[in-house]
Design a protein around this nucleic acid. Structure first.
Lengths: 226, 226
DNA sequence: TCAAAAGTGTTGTCCGTACACCCATGA
DNA sequence: TCATGGGTGTACGGACAACACTTTTGA
């Protein structure tokens, strides 16, 4: 089954998370070719010789979504020799958090190796190619872990957001419900929110105060978050 | 400075930790050749095409220490194109925890590319080759992090140990002092220790009870450790 | 005036921390 | 008998969890 080739190939695969329609979704591409024809895969690509791994991941994201300076974390490196048929592909997996509003995907759907591109709930994944189901599991576990140390949920929200939206993001990622009062107390105590003098309009019944993420205090808080 | 070559090379580097003489030490080899002649480096080697990354790390450890089934964790993958002069070497870094008693190192000190091999305190490292200082920092941070979730300290101790020895290991890794009563309470409450009917002899004044690590309950506890 | 989401405090429990003395043995 | 490390319990404080009602607006 596994056939030796002369060299290792190195790819970067990026599990792109977003919150859409009240659920945590990942971006997948459906393969139009063997191996794993019709199966879905995480976007990825080869690492160029002149770029480092983070740069490769950022480049892939930019090529496919036009987004720059996306939040990225390296997760794990997968190197099972049997993970790719007929060649040895070692992949460094990352996850990315993006805001899905006004996102324009740039996948070339006329390309012969891609059938379609779409978002899928992490709780309802289609059949995946290679070991990509495992990679998504690692990514999802890591995302939940990161959320306990660092307020990464901001990366999934618009610049200005309400506390209820923030809480929803936490609930969606952690797949649980949280107490409103306790959640607000905790967030306020962290000093990472900037309270704005702006309120939502016509969104709900009573207008809700908007907040921003306070970038200045983030770096201090990251370590002492717990 | 950086010269493109045709392929990426993949290595595994292993930060080998042990506790020796009351301090946390890492095993380093002193280079006998350029680049970085006389500088110290983490043991590492190329990944073979037919083995996965963990196997490569285990193989390296076995080749150099005769130890099998060593505790290993993948830490991070370093891929800066400038980290190696004149070639592109991506390295998957691991850390290993070993018991230093009755350890026989098998480094071939007559090999032309190794000058010597020795243990160094993580708080007093010599000049390191490549980005190995950074890798050791990542490894050390990860080790301390792991200790909060999972009782990895056992991997550094003999099969049977006293609670004081276990506490010393924690103190050495975390670089702090711990309260004896609180530490014992915590350890007992975790149900990961098997109390033996054996005591130390002639080691200190009053004999101390010996404990073993209870492997059965470990896997349950790993997740709920906190 | 009503429906819907926004906003707000108090109490109990658990866990981590601080802290000091007696015990068993070898010399 | 004394020096040395082994072994033990209690009290406080902070963080988290549980819990219900009032407020503001749009329709």
């Amino acid at each position: 089954m596994y056939q030796e080739t002369k060299t290792h190939e190195i790819t970067v695969d990026v599990v792109i998370f977003t919150i859409k329609k009240g659920s945590l979704q990942v971006l997948l591409v459906q393969r139009a070719k063997e191996p794993f024809i019709n199966k879905w895969a995480i976007p990825g690509g080869f690492v160029r010789l002149s770029e480092n791994l983070d740069e490769a991941a950022q480049r892939l994201l930019f090529e496919k979504s036009n987004l720059k300076d996306v939040y990225l974390e390296q997760i794990y490196t997968f190197g099972n020799p049997l993970r790719y048929p007929n060649s040895r592909v070692i992949t460094v997996a990352y996850f990315a958090l993006i805001r899905s509003e006004n996102l324009v995907l740039k996948f070339d759907e006329t390309a012969e190796n891609i059938k379609q591109v779409s978002w899928h709930s992490v709780y309802d994944l289609p059949k995946l190619a290679f070991d990509h189901e495992l990679i998504i599991q690692y990514a999802y576990n890591r995302l939940r872990g990161s959320l306990e140390y660092s307020p990464v949920a901001f990366q999934l929200l618009p610049k200005k957001f309400t506390l209820t939206e923030l809480q929803k993001a936490y609930e969606i990622i952690l797949h649980t419900t949280l107490d409103k009062r306790n959640f607000r107390k905790k967030m306020v105590s962290l000093n990472i929110l900037k309270e704005l003098d702006e309120y939502t309009k016509n969104r709900s019944k009573r207008p809700a105060r908007l907040y921003m993420f306070n970038e200045e205090t983030l770096n201090d808080k990251k370590s002492a978050f717990h």
